[in-house]
């Protein structure tokens, strides 16, 4: 029964990774770049929600909504001013810029919000419920996180497969020139992708802070790197891959902490990634890219 409890908690953690990983994977799919500032968008989302809740005393729903909107705008601005001018530059320049944006946001947050840790207010009474005559105890938070993640996955899958904008996103990720010839505005489509990923980052931020309530301006770094790992693990560029990768990573991490070692859990997580990439370089659900000759 303990195993089942670890498994479900792992899925909860993995759901947060999955939501963050979606941002990495969608942006990679369309802009073919790794947006290393993505983790720091999460951090900005956390601070926004925090100030909305504590200083402005907004309701939980309003606070989350404002955080989502602000991160969406932030994502669009980052793309517009940091990455768009580099559309024709080498991928190395873009990568270095992304790392620069990441440090910029972290330092900006240190100036604006200070380096002292903040404590995120309790959004849900930490109530738990028991199943199987009290043998399995789960928290509502974990359950909520998993449900939110599944909902996001369903909505995103519908968006990408059924709507005109979603299909245009897929077209752009496959062939930008051909997409332009169809009348698709590639720049706008890339903006929409950044907006979506960053909005999701804000949701991830709130879910993250509900579980780990203390946070600092470097909040986004570790979940960011782990979610990036999850995206690569599942196959970067693939939306279902981000979901599967995120969940698996969360489960592996939690089980490692429970049965092997708390200190070594991150090392083991990254080792699993290396092994997966050795066996399947394109990730679990990654597509083989056929290079045109």
């Amino acid at each position: 029964m303990a195993f089942l409890s670890y498994l479900i908690n792992g899925m909860g953690l993995g759901s947060v990774y999955a939501i963050i990983a979606l941002g990495y994977t969608m942006v990679y799919g369309i802009a073919k770049m790794l947006n290393f500032a993505h983790g720091d968008v999460i951090m900005i989302g956390a601070y926004t929600a925090f100030y909305c809740l504590t200083v402005f005393k907004f309701s939980t729903f309003t606070s989350i909504l404002i955080a989502v909107l602000l991160c969406t705008v932030l994502g669009i601005l980052i793309e517009r001013f940091a990455y768009k001018p580099l559309r024709k530059a080498s991928s190395l320049s873009v990568l270095i810029t992304a790392i620069g944006v990441s440090y910029f946001l972290q330092n900006l947050a240190q100036i604006l919000f200070g380096t002292n840790p903040k404590v995120f207010p309790e959004l849900m009474r930490n109530s738990t419920f028991s199943l199987f005559d009290g043998q399995l105890t789960l928290s509502y938070k974990t359950l909520l996180t998993i449900i939110v993640c599944i909902l996001i996955m369903i909505l995103l899958t519908i968006f990408v497969n059924k709507t005109k904008t979603g299909k245009a996103m897929r077209a752009c990720s496959q062939d930008k020139e051909a997409a332009q010839l169809m009348g698709i505005n590639v720049d706008n489509t890339i903006s929409i992708t950044f907006a979506l990923g960053s909005g999701l980052a804000a949701i991830a931020a709130v879910l993250l802070c509900m579980t780990y309530s203390t946070f600092t301006p470097t909040l986004g770094s570790m979940p960011g790197i782990k979610a990036f790992t999850a995206a690569v693990f599942g196959g970067i560029g693939s939306i279902p891959g981000a979901f599967v990768g995120g969940l698996l990573l969360g489960i592996i991490e939690t089980l490692t902490k429970a049965y092997l070692s708390t200190q070594l859990s991150d090392a083991i997580v990254f080792m699993v990634l290396i092994i997966v990439l050795l066996i399947r370089p394109t990730g679990l659900l990654g597509k083989k890219v056929h290079e045109k000759v």
Binding site: K164, K167, A168, R170, A171, G183, K287, H290
Partner: peptide, 15 residues
């Protein structure tokens, strides 16, 4: 668009 269906390709043509 290699990974889209024939129908989706045509729909994109009519974007």
């Amino acid at each position: 668009f290699q990974q889209m269906t024939v129908l989706e390709n045509l729909e994109m043509g009519a974007y």
